[in-house]
Amino acid sequence: MRVELQQIRKSYPLPGGDGTVAALDGVDLVIESGTLCILKGPSGSGKTTLLSVISGLSRPTSGSVLLDGTVVRNPLDRQRGMVAHGFQEAVFIPELTVVENLLLPALRCGDRLAVDRGERLLEAFGLGEMFDVPPAALSGGEKRRLNLARSLFLPPRLLLIDEPAAYLDDGWQVKAMEMIIREVRDARATLVMATHTPLPGDEGFRHILMHKGKVIDDGTSDY
């Protein structure tokens, strides 16, 4: 899936109502279909906001998001278009079990995906014994892995992942990256991944560096 951002601005009101702060400040970006892309930059540089704007979780103050050349307006449109988002926060519905939380992306798609895909994913992310436990019973690392597994549940055409390595130990960082890249390549999808730490296995990726809501560098060189 091709992603095109045109003059994206996103500002938030400051506490107390005294003006606004710009999280994204006129971002122009084109990511061609099938590109593996890493958003880098310090905390507060706008990486998470940019992913949220692409996925539709956040509406830009101005500018347009085009997916495959079409302007999309809400998250539902993006779901139908097979956009998956691995959130920065490992957020789950506490009343649902691990496997039910994993199945959430299929909720509105009416997709007849076999449950065995869910089972395979949970096994692959080391959560094979955790099918029917509530997410509260998982450790921080297990929650992150479930969050990643959920983002891969529907074969995506565009996968947006925010800080995939956070709370993962070194072994799982490598393993998770390998699985993400394999899934993306198998689906011939586009990957946009935000991180401010170097990831193992990200050589050859397109690297986009952000700072204060702007893209300040863009290339394939290693940062």
């Binding site: 979780l57 809400n74 998250p75 539902l76 957020v91 519905i93 909720l107 509105r108």
Partner: peptide, 9 residues
């Protein structure tokens, strides 16, 4: 937020 993110209007 999660339900909205997964397409519930």
């Amino acid at each position: 937020g999660l339900l909205q993110a997964f397409g519930c209007g």
